[in-house]
């Protein structure tokens, strides 16, 4: 009975992808890669939403719904990453990615507010900034692979 319960717990832990808060360099690199990828995905999604909205190709309710998801997803990924204690060899990487994640979070929030207020004049500039950030994340991702 005990083996069964602890086995189940182990299974759930495995499935949840828990990362110990003091990861070693390999685990940390892996986590960095995944977080960068997730941030890239949401940043480009939001950029796409803004661009299609500006072009009159997006429906506002859809954009708002997806923006909500993207923002939540980005926040979760950011939180999971920044709460880690990086191994000392990876301090620079930790700082760099945390900074980018913070910028991404800010931009996505700005996007959400702009769409909420239908301030379409702001969209192109936001798209440019999101795309620039996405390129940085993509380069970081490339270095981590």
């Amino acid at each position: 009975m005990k083996v069964g319960t602890s086995g189940l717990v182990a299974l759930l832990v495995l499935l949840s992808g828990c990362v110990p808060s003091n990861p070693d360099t390999d685990t940390f690199d892996d986590k960095s890669l995944r977080t960068a990828g997730a941030a890239l995905s949401q940043t480009r999604t939001v950029s796409g939403l803004l661009q299609t909205s500006y072009d009159g190709r997006m429906l506002r309710p859809t954009a708002l719904a997806q923006l909500r998801y993207s923002e939540d997803s980005l926040d979760t990924a950011t939180g999971a990453f920044t709460e880690l204690n990086p191994p000392s060899a990876r301090d620079a990487q930790y700082t760099r990615l945390s900074t980018l994640l913070g910028e991404a979070g800010d931009l996505v929030a700005e996007a959400r507010i702009a769409v909420e207020r239908s301030e379409e004049a702001r969209y192109p500039r936001l798209v440019d900034r999101l795309d620039a950030l996405a390129s940085k994340l993509e380069r970081l991702e490339g270095r981590l692979r």
Partner: peptide, 26 residues
Amino acid sequence: PAGIEVESLGQVALPVAVALGQLGLA
């Protein structure tokens, strides 16, 4: 190509908006 990984239904619909606009999305 954009590095977008689908995690929500809105992302599933995004290509249709890109291609066909509001009507296609609806």
